[in-house]
Computed example of a mutant assay.
Amino acid sequence: MITIQQAVDNFKKLIETSIIEGGIKAKEAMIRSSRPINNIHEAVKSDFIRSGIAEHRIHPPLGESKPELKLAGFIKQKNQDVCVSPEGYIPESEMMTEGILREATDYYGKDYTERTISVNIRSQMSSLAKNFDTLYERTIAEAQNLHVRCPKMVLGEVYMIPVKEYDAAAMINNEIKFIDRIGAVEKYIKSFQAINGRLDFTREDYKYERVCLLLIDFEKTPAKIYSSNLDLINDGLIDKNTDANMSELSWETFTKNILDTYSTRFGV
């Protein structure tokens, strides 16, 4: 099992080693391989296990990237990044009767799906401002897909972005440099605040029960993980008078909040 700090440092090492050895093409190939982001998957699984979840309930298993649970929502069936399956429930295949997937086979069944915790894990390492709208819309759509069909389902989102992007021009020469211009840090905080904390399962299906926004300074060694407004303000990443707030998006309470919400919904 690994900590989130170890996972982020492993991510940094893989990215930077690929840049030194092969420049920008090697870095892009490394990201496509999913090896860097799989470290964050392992940190999420590890934290669930440290919080008392039995290993046999974690999908994919610790240390593996397969098999994933392919859960059916209102619009599509999709492999989920990390799931915690419900204790005492057995998947029961059923024919779906509504939505775009009408008459498709759900191999787990609605009851099992609704009692499964699902956590999406994503990262965006470049063009943070340029690609924001598309990425944000996709994030919302993932929550809606499952919540429309399974309103009580507990969903988490771990989203990692750098506070300083790697310099693409320097990568051409196999060099590791960072763009001094700070990307859309405050915009990301406010935007993920808006879809965080779905406590009432009868409404706001576009929200996640808990979002973790991992803001990372990869220029530092070890990589610095920001968990509070104070650190961000001190490092000049957000204005001291901002109404953006990291307190409910930090890693430290992510797993606890997910499990507490699950216990409230399902009484276990």
Rank of each mutant, 00 (worst) to 15 (best):
E142S: 12
N10S: 15
S191R: 11
D133M: 04
Q144H: 07
F178K: 01
R32F: 12
D231Q: 14
I216N: 01
D243Q: 11
D239R: 09
K207W: 04
S127Q: 10
K25S: 14
R115I: 04
A223L: 04
K164S: 01
E142H: 09
A72L: 14
E137S: 11
V44Y: 03
D81Y: 08
G63H: 05
I49F: 10
I258H: 00
H59C: 13
T97L: 12
R35N: 12
V154Q: 06
H147C: 06
E21I: 05
R265N: 06
K256H: 11
D167R: 00
F48R: 08
L146G: 00
F48W: 03
K220F: 00
F266M: 09
L214Y: 07
Y159I: 07
F48I: 05
A168V: 08
D205E: 12
C83M: 10
D243V: 14
K25C: 07
D200C: 07
K177R: 15
A184I: 01
Q77A: 14
P60R: 09
E209Q: 14
Y188S: 02
K220H: 08
E252V: 10
L214T: 07
K110C: 05
R122S: 11
K12P: 00
C150L: 09
T139W: 10
E68G: 00
I117H: 03
M171K: 02
I15Q: 06
F74T: 03
K220Y: 05
E103F: 15
A129N: 01
D243A: 09
T221D: 13
A129Y: 01
V185W: 00
H41Q: 06
M153Q: 15
N257P: 00
I4Q: 00
N229G: 08
D200E: 13
T261Q: 11
I258W: 03
I161K: 01
Y136P: 00
Q124E: 09
Y206S: 13
I58C: 07
I238M: 03
I75L: 14
M96S: 02
D167M: 03
P60Q: 03
N79D: 10
E204K: 13
A194M: 11
N145V: 06
K187H: 08
D47N: 15
I19D: 05
S263Q: 13
L62F: 13
R210E: 10
K25Q: 12
M153N: 08
V154E: 04
E209K: 11
T261L: 13
Y107V: 13
Y159L: 08
P222A: 10
P151Y: 07
R57D: 10
M246C: 06
L230C: 07
I182Y: 00
A104S: 14
F254I: 02
Y89W: 12
H147Q: 12
D243P: 02
Y166N: 00
I90G: 02
Y262W: 09
E21D: 15
K13D: 11
S34C: 09
T3F: 04
D106W: 04
N229V: 01
Y112G: 04
P61A: 10
E103N: 15
R149Y: 07
I140K: 15
I233F: 04
S65Q: 13
Q77S: 14
Y136G: 03
K207L: 05
Q80W: 06
S118L: 08
A72T: 11
Q6W: 05
F192G: 05
K187F: 01
A141T: 07
V185P: 00
G236F: 01
